[in-house]
Amino acid sequence: MIQDLHDTIPNLKPFDYSIHHDSNFINQHWVLVNGIAEKKSTYVFKKDNVLEIYRKDNVIETSWNIHFQNIFTIETEDGRATVKAYLKDEDMLVLNDQTKDEFALFINTSNYADELNSMEDVQNYIKYKYKQKASNLIYGHQFYYISESEEFGPFTVEELTEKVKKDEISAFCFVRDINEDDYSNRMRINDLIQEL
């Protein structure tokens, strides 16, 4: 069961109470992705083991308990579920049901301005999230570029952008990360500029 979960959602990290409980879990607005097209549910795990579930204008107050580092019991209108908690990153929570071959995927919208009300909204959120992550990774990072069979660099993306604006180089020159040995990934300066 657990291997299937890791195949479906790779790179999951187990929830670590000492690291994640206060900063990434308590009082955050977790939108349930499963079934969002039929009804939107937002879960807020409060201190003192109170769980508030928001649906439209309705608030259900129930309970949750942590038993081990990442094993929880959650009480909902469907009954009690024992789940193992994982994080995809700080804004994606996965609760794997320990008695069924099911899991629930949640997105933390506490720091996200737009509403998540549909699968299209979820897809837009994921695009936004990972585009922002890619921008943060390449910002300040250095790259070599090749022009007329000669290699130049390393330069930051900002420096390469300035060179393109001044027509010193083409936006279609191939680039490689300073940690790569060749240009086999076929990335161009233009690809980097679009990510910023």
Results as ranks from 00 to 15, higher is better:
residue 79 G to T: 04
residue 49 N to A: 03
residue 135 S to T: 09
residue 156 T to E: 13
residue 96 N to T: 07
residue 69 Q to V: 08
residue 116 L to W: 05
residue 35 G to D: 07
residue 81 A to G: 02
residue 23 S to F: 10
residue 117 N to L: 09
residue 46 K to W: 11
residue 5 L to S: 00
residue 117 N to V: 11
residue 7 D to L: 15
residue 192 L to W: 03
residue 137 L to F: 13
residue 154 P to L: 10
residue 136 N to L: 14
residue 141 H to V: 01
residue 26 I to P: 08
residue 147 S to C: 07
residue 120 E to R: 10
residue 128 Y to H: 15
residue 74 I to L: 08
residue 112 Y to I: 10
residue 138 I to T: 11
residue 176 R to D: 06
residue 193 I to Y: 04
residue 89 D to Q: 01
residue 183 Y to G: 00
residue 149 S to A: 13
residue 88 K to T: 05
residue 140 G to A: 01
residue 57 D to P: 02
residue 136 N to K: 09
residue 176 R to N: 08
residue 173 C to E: 12
residue 87 L to T: 02
residue 92 M to D: 13
residue 51 L to A: 00
residue 157 V to M: 14
residue 31 V to E: 05
residue 132 Q to R: 12
residue 114 D to Y: 14
residue 1 M to V: 12
residue 163 K to C: 05
residue 91 D to I: 09
residue 169 I to G: 09
residue 166 K to T: 07
residue 28 Q to L: 09
residue 181 D to Y: 06
residue 132 Q to E: 07
residue 161 T to W: 08
residue 66 I to R: 15
residue 134 A to R: 07
residue 75 E to M: 12
residue 194 Q to L: 15
residue 50 V to L: 15
residue 87 L to Q: 13
residue 11 N to I: 05
residue 83 V to L: 10
residue 152 F to L: 03
residue 42 T to H: 02
residue 24 N to Q: 08
residue 152 F to D: 10
residue 174 F to Q: 14
residue 69 Q to N: 15
residue 164 V to K: 02
residue 53 I to H: 07
